[in-house]
């Protein structure tokens, strides 16, 4: 038995285009922010602790330091997961910010497309670098 009740605040209005077939996207987005956020607490704070605080912090980082870390599948996996989760978490947060402030539809659309292009580019670049890193690069 299906029952449909129109939104009383928009009499006669039929949701158009994008708004119609969104399903539960915003709910899954909300859940994703919390789940990815909790994972990122460990990944990113661990990353910052190792890279910036312990054992001389940023002063000891150079190409050789990176080569040593990425010789281990553990740190490769850590950095790959961190890259993807942080970029998707950050991009979804930026999408929320754009939707909050860019009210003009064309401005909203352009900002979001720019965000999505940049996000795909950075995730692809970072993934490529982790997978193709060459410690013997002269």
């Amino acid at each position: 038995m299906s029952l449909e009740i129109a939104d009383p605040r928009s009499p006669g209005a039929v949701p158009s285009g994008r708004a119609r077939n969104r399903g539960n996207f915003e709910k899954y987005s909300w859940i994703f922010m919390r789940v990815s956020g909790l994972v990122l607490v460990f990944l990113v704070l661990g990353h910052l602790l190792i890279m910036n605080v312990l054992d001389g912090g940023v002063q000891r980082i150079n190409f050789g330091f990176v080569a040593g870390r990425w010789s281990s599948p553990f740190w490769q996996t850590w950095d790959l997961l961190q890259l993807w989760l942080a970029m998707l978490h950050g991009a979804n947060g930026m999408r929320t910010v754009i939707n909050d402030y860019a009210e003009k539809p064309s401005t909203n659309f352009r900002l979001r497309m720019l965000l999505y292009v940049v996000t795909v580019f950075i995730i692809a670049l970072g993934t490529l670098v982790i997978f193709t890193f060459d410690p013997n690069l002269a």
Partner: peptide, 22 residues
């Protein structure tokens, strides 16, 4: 959140220089 996101974009690009040269 916005500040960290913009740093993240820069940070992935500076780390990508390991593919250019030491």
């Amino acid at each position: 959140g916005v500040a960290v996101f913009f740093f993240l974009l820069v940070h992935v690009m500076d780390t990508a220089l390991v593919r250019v040269s030491p």
